Simulated scan of single mutants.
Amino acid sequence: MSLYAGIEAGGTKFVCAVASDFDTILKEERFPTTTPEETLPRALDFFRRAEEELKDQHGAITSMGIAAFGPVNVDSSSSRYGWITSTPKPGWKNTDIRGYFVREMNVPVGFDTDVNGAALGEGHAGAGRGLDTFMYITIGTGVGGGIIVNNKPVHGLVHPEVGHMILKPREGETFQGVCPYHSHCVEGMCAGPAIKARWGTPGDQLPDDHEAWDVEASYIAQALMSYVLIISPERIILGGGVMHQRQLFPKIRKELKTLLNGYVDHPAILEEREDYIVPPGLEDHAGITGAFILAAGAAHR
């Protein structure tokens, strides 16, 4: 008997959970991401309470997985492996989040980006199931993407940062975006704060037929065009708060077809197929499911 501990460490909220397998959550707690000094001990307290309550029936926590907002260091050979690095999130730059739980919990801790975690979850039991190569992209407070190739998350020099590709401004565009690092990048033009900055109102308060969604779809499709041409994913999963606006999906499919202009000769593009650009199958549970998968990997390493 054993338990997996999982953390989906988002820039807005932490999701902490304990499970007996990837699909069976026994206890879960969600709370705002404040400072490391407040948030990490609060998560630790949850796991200690959960283990005490569950260990007689299910055993002790034997491993943990963390899927964290970033940028992060995913190089397991680095002395800074498991650190949140150059994040714009106030107070979190250069935070050794993995090391904290290794020391306090004394168990193996698997670690990756929050979007790679969500991609792993979707591959296990969501919209990526059965596929070798796909992308999970979140468009919410920020924009990030997990890329799965041959059933594994892509790492390299660091990790993919699909939210910071530079986009070509639309004709007559005056909005520079909200990213503190780059003008006209995907995150700066498409994330939730960009919608609010451009229109003066949060996206969830705009009507479905507002022109904001045509603008949003055009920029998202421009980003997807690059991903299709570079990665050639079998499916693109679009999650995050902005993508709760389901009217965006047909607009994005249509705009992507227009931008590619027949160059990618595949019915997924040419027929604007609804099974190519899709919402998450697990919705808000993709990230924590991925954290359990990371925990299992750490346990067997």
Rank of each mutant, 00 (worst) to 15 (best):
S2P: 02
I7V: 05
E8G: 01
K13T: 06
K13H: 11
R30W: 06
P32D: 10
E37Q: 14
F46V: 01
F46G: 10
R49H: 11
A50R: 02
I61Y: 04
A68I: 01
F69E: 07
D75V: 04
Y81R: 03
G91L: 08
K93W: 09
G99W: 03
Y100D: 12
R103C: 09
F111K: 05
N116Y: 09
G123N: 02
H124P: 00
G128F: 15
Y136W: 03
I137S: 04
T138I: 12
I139Q: 07
G145L: 04
N151F: 13
V158E: 14
P160W: 03
P160F: 12
G163R: 08
I166R: 12
I166V: 14
T174G: 08
F175P: 00
Q176P: 00
Q176S: 14
V178L: 01
Y181V: 11
Y181H: 13
C185M: 05
E187T: 06
G188R: 08
A197T: 10
G200Q: 04
T201Y: 04
P202D: 13
L206C: 06
D208T: 12
D208Y: 09
D209Q: 06
E211R: 14
Y227P: 00
Y227L: 12
L229C: 13
E234P: 01
R235N: 01
G239C: 05
G239H: 09
G240T: 00
L248C: 03
I252E: 01
I252Y: 05
T258R: 11
T258M: 11
P267N: 12
A268D: 09
A268I: 11
G281W: 13
L282N: 06
L282S: 02
L282Y: 12
A286W: 08
I288H: 11
T289R: 15
A291R: 04
L294C: 02
A298Y: 05
